[in-house]
């Protein structure tokens, strides 16, 4: 049996292995049984940590940093550009489930602000052109 203290690790792993980068209700219930932790607490932990999601996300989770250093370099504009490029609003998922957009707190890429994290990769020094190229590249890569 997995120790109860491994709840967060377990949630991270389950999310990592899900195409939509999320933990479904079924999975939450499974984890609750497996670890012997009440479902309310499993949900509580999953909803506490912002990297964990109980809602389905895109194959590429675009996380736009909006902490201080990125904010003053125009993180909000970056968000708008992504919204336009992907045709969704922040917090939404594209229809083809390829991309989802969200804000994140600092990702430690302050020297290349404004920066985003897409799955495990960090991209910095963004502007409209770079974002277009990036989205284009990911669209192809996913296919």
């Amino acid at each position: 049996m997995i120790g109860k203290d491994k709840l967060i690790e377990t949630l991270i792993n389950v999310q990592k292995n899900s195409k939509g980068h999320y933990i479904s209700e079924d999975k939450l219930e499974e984890i609750s049984k497996e670890l012997g932790v009440s479902l309310s607490k499993v949900h509580g932990v999953a909803s506490f940590y912002s990297m964990l999601s109980t809602k389905e996300r895109g194959e590429y989770v675009v996380q736009i940093c909006n902490s201080g250093p990125c904010y003053i370099q125009g993180a909000n504009n970056i968000a708008t550009i992504f919204e336009e490029e992907l045709g969704i609003k922040m917090g939404e998922v594209t229809e083809d489930k390829k991309f989802s957009l969200e804000f994140t707190s600092c990702i430690g890429a302050c020297d290349i602000a404004p920066a985003v994290k897409i799955n495990n990769e960090v991209y910095g020094g963004l502007n409209k052109e770079k974002i277009r190229e990036l989205v284009e590249m990911l669209r192809k890569e996913g296919n």
Partner: peptide
């Protein structure tokens, strides 16, 4: 030892909730 309710979310969104 029932655990029907717990804190969910954080910050000003934190609330006491049933699971899911």
């Amino acid at each position: 030892g029932v655990g029907a309710i717990y804190n969910i979310n954080r910050g000003s969104e934190m609330k006491i909730s049933t699971p899911l």
